[in-house]
């Protein structure tokens, strides 16, 4: 009997531990003050360790901590393409001790599409600023078959799955340029989709410039189209932009989509944050990422900084969220598969 009792006690211990951990994210905190000195701030990354988001978060954390006199720790909460972590952050206290690094196109795209699982109003969140922004680049293999946007018609795109940035791009290009192209989904990762382009199993693949650059530099991939603002990288200097090739009837939608892609990597906090705290975070963020030494070392490690202030970011979000029906329908299509 004693043994059974011990077993039950052990199970209870585990259950309590489980309960604690799921509540930990929103644990008790003292009243919000307009200083975060000596506090511990959690910077939530909605993706696995090791990717671009994780890298930016870990670069930023010590500097932001220094500016605020606080300790900033990075916590990876992967799941549901980022929606899981965003839902959690939105429901935590707006006391400045929980912030998140969000994937702009994914975050805003799923909000516009009212995708399954989204439990928040993207416009109401408190935006602290943008740390990076890069265009998406559509690439093909070195076969020389596709040289212009027109050649893309009837070809096949690779993508991980519906709702991913690369799938949204393919659906939008199909619609705006009238390509009638097939999108092959199911690849385990974006890198795997890319290898299939090199292998000539598929023709086209769209993802961020930073992810495409190694393949372009190695000569395995050839850029054919840029979506969003070209940041001046020499590798894509002469590549046409979506805005140049789109027919005038679709220009408005192309501009909207370029804005969505350019929303980049965003630092955000829960909705309802008081103005003093929000300004404190925005100022500290600005001071951290506009530091010249930081920008230089970030660029050298292949993670260039592109700063936008929180107020401007908030406007960008409102603009995207107020998109006309035609664009909303298009994005919804990109989420329904």
């Amino acid at each position: 009997m004693q043994k059974v009792g011990m077993g039950i006690a052990a199970l209870i211990t585990v259950a309590v531990l489980a309960g604690c951990s799921s509540n930990a994210a929103s644990g008790d905190t003292p009243d919000a003050e307009t200083s975060l000195e000596g506090q511990t701030i959690t910077l939530v990354v909605p993706f696995d360790p090791g990717g671009g988001y994780d890298a930016y978060a870990r670069m930023l954390a010590p500097l932001l901590g220094e500016e605020l006199g606080a300790t900033v720790i990075v916590e990876n909460r992967p799941g549901a393409g980022g929606i899981l972590a965003t839902n959690e952050v939105v429901n935590s206290k707006p006391d400045g001790r929980t912030i998140a690094l969000l994937n702009g196109p994914g975050h805003l795209g799923s909000a516009i599409a009212e995708a399954d699982g989204v439990l928040y109003d993207a416009e109401k969140m408190s935006y602290i600023g943008q740390i990076s922004s890069e265009p998406d680049v559509v690439v093909t293999n070195g076969g020389g078959e596709i040289e212009s946007a027109d050649d893309m018609a009837g070809k096949r795109f690779a993508a991980t799955g519906p709702g991913s940035n690369e799938y949204i791009d393919a659906v939008v290009l199909n619609e705006l340029l009238g390509l009638d192209s097939e999108v092959i989904t199911g690849f385990a990762s974006s890198n795997e989709a890319s290898l299939n382009v090199v292998q000539k199993n598929v023709d086209l693949h769209s993802r961020s410039l930073g992810s495409q650059l190694p393949g372009i530099k190695a000569g395995d991939l050839v850029p054919v189209l840029v979506i969003g603002t070209n940041s001046g990288e020499s590798e894509i200097a002469n590549v046409p932009n979506l805005l140049d090739v789109v027919p005038s009837s679709s220009k408005e939608l192309a501009i909207l989509h370029s804005a969505l892609v350019s929303s980049g990597r965003i630092i955000a906090a829960p909705p309802g944050m008081d103005e003093g705290m929000l300004n404190l975070l925005r100022d500290a963020f600005e001071a951290a990422v506009t530091d010249e030494a930081f920008q230089k070392s970030a660029a050298e490690s292949g993670r260039p900084i592109s700063f936008m202030g929180g107020a401007d970011m908030q406007k960008l979000v409102s603009g995207v969220m107020g998109s006309p029906k035609a664009y909303v329908e298009l994005i919804k299509k990109a989420y329904s598969g």
Binding site: P214, K217, G302, R303
Partner: peptide
């Protein structure tokens, strides 16, 4: 990720 940060291009 470390390869890229250290300036090495796989390929």
């Amino acid at each position: 990720g470390a390869f890229l940060i250290l300036g090495l291009n796989p390929g």
